[in-house]
Amino acid sequence: MATSLALYSTLEFAANPGRPVTAAEIAAKYGVSLHHLSKVLADLARAGLLDSVRGVGGGYRFAGNPKRLTLLDVIELFEQTVESGNGNGERNEVETALAQVLSEIDEITKATFGSITIETMLKLVEKHRNAGSPVAEKMQR
């Protein structure tokens, strides 16, 4: 849940560069717990992806580089990604074979998330918005 909130929030802030956005605004837009979201935003700020803006009209502002920041960078702030390899301890042949298949999936997943930048995601959102996707329209509001 925290990872999904982080991804939605990062895209939301990156789509509004320079404009402070409050946690309440995002929580209302996506129908999520403000308490839970606030913790996620604090973690993103600690990682340097958001700047805190104090005072009236305050909130958070995107501080990352959308051309460089990838989905994997955001995910890894909240989840421990699995390293490929044989793991610890001895495995029998069934476990080894299954681990090989799971490792293949992990590597593809990692390559996918690691190659999609926030800027690329914003282009994709725009494409869906132009095609009339309700989710993309939600991001615009």
């Binding site: 390559a111 190659s115 690329t120 282009k123 494409k127």
Partner: peptide, 18 residues
């Protein structure tokens, strides 16, 4: 190659998907 992050990111930025 899935190890070639630079090229993967480039083609993704052009709008290519799997």
């Amino acid at each position: 190659s899935r190890d070639n992050n630079l090229m993967l990111s480039f083609v993704r930025s052009q709008g290519m998907m799997a």
